[in-house]
Design a protein around this nucleic acid. Structure first.
Lengths: 218, 218
DNA sequence: CAACTGTATATTGGATCCAACCTTACGCCG
DNA sequence: CGGCGTAAGGTTGGATCCAATATACAGTTG
């Protein structure tokens, strides 16, 4: 696997991983010197990467006090899912009216990737493929600004996705739902597609709530 | 007027101004050395400011080739306004159910600021106050993630706002519409509020189209 | 004993310097 | 004469160094 073209991109990827895996815990101050040392780079590219993470809401910045990993309250998470609903519903409706055969092929390819990853019990790849699958569905809408926003919304909840996929019940449910979603997509039935996606997310939110309540009471 | 606490914040403000005023024209490469020199700072804070602008979509970045001011096509602008519609409608509906007396007072204060600026023919302040007015309406919804997104959407179209307000017809129309909007807000009539805001934006889009067609044919 | 102040230290903010890369112009070869 | 390889210059990417600010702690005073 080739290292990204620029160091800041490499650092950005690493930081995303670290935040996602809770290696950098919420509310924890990010000591630039130690993190930079750890990654074998200087502080400059690190700071640039932190700036983009700040814009995405992954970290919070306070002048002269540095960066801390953003803490997401339940209210934050619910809001993020609500926004995903607004934006992805719009994208799905538009996409259904514009998608062509090539788009269907792309979606099907990602669907297969998810199934295959599930068969191999490869959680990481399954999560990645799932993301590509959902984005492939929205892509034909040809709304780059919307896509950028949806992307950052997915990023902010990425840390919780692994928990969700850890349960076999959820995994199989996702696979079933994907089938129905693809059928709606290929039928160019925007309303049905949007509704299926909505229910798809609804399950994720319910699971999320359960997880958070559990950790709160445990 | 005190200079911002950090240099990067200062640079960020200056860059926003420069892009807005077309001092930095779309598609123009941003020579870091000259811009930094111009502002009397080094390249480091400039690059950090550019990173946040990149995340907001105001500039485009290509590794080893630097930053260029983002060019907004008509399709981009229409998409941005469509997204504003989705997000601001949601915020307005929620806001109407949550707003209290203090919120009404805040909105009224901003309304007065807009009127006053208009009376003084102070375009810059009128635009600023108008923005505060609209945000004051959405604020009670208490949706920080949504607000962040709406903020960047406003930023991307800021350059065109000055053109719109330049026409006296548009200015007086805005003032009238604001009155109706405030009444709906104080009546906590979310549906009416959202509809009025929608029509409010619709005029702006129409004017925008006209302007762009004109420049395209001129 | 609490609160305040001054100082020392750790950490971030910014400037300068060097390396890597892209771009362009020129000369060579087909 | 046109296309390609190559070298030189310019611009960005990254590292190191220094300055400014915040934090923690100790000493002092009411």
């Amino acid at each position: 696997m080739p290292r990204p073209p620029t160091t800041q991109q490499f650092v950005l990827d690493e930081l995303r991983r670290a935040i996602l895996s809770r290696q950098l815990a919420p509310n924890q101050p990010i000591r630039q010197d130690s993190v930079a040392h750890e990654l074998g780079v200087s502080r400059v590219p690190l700071r640039e990467a932190l700036k983009t993470l700040e814009a995405e809401g992954q970290v919070v910045y306070r002048p002269h006090r540095g960066y801390t990993v953003a803490e997401l309250s339940l209210a934050d998470l619910l809001e993020v899912y609500r926004l995903r609903e607004l934006l992805e519903t719009e994208a799905a409706l538009v996409s259904a009216t514009k998608a062509g055969e090539a788009d269907s092929a792309a979606v099907r390819a990602e669907l297969r990737a998810v199934v295959e990853a599930a068969a191999n019990d490869d959680l990481v790849e399954m999560i990645a493929a799932n993301r590509r699958f959902h984005f492939a569905i929205l892509e034909p809408a040809d709304m780059p600004w919307l896509m950028r926003m949806v992307r950052t919304l997915w990023d902010t909840t990425d840390a919780y996705r692994a928990v969700y996929y850890n349960a076999p019940d959820n995994r199989s449910r996702v696979l079933e739902e994907h089938e129905a979603i693809v059928r709606a997509f290929e039928a160019r039935d925007g309303a049905e597609l949007a509704e299926l996606l909505r229910r798809h997310r609804e399950h994720a939110v319910a699971a999320l709530r359960a997880t958070l309540d559990e950790t709160a009471n445990g």
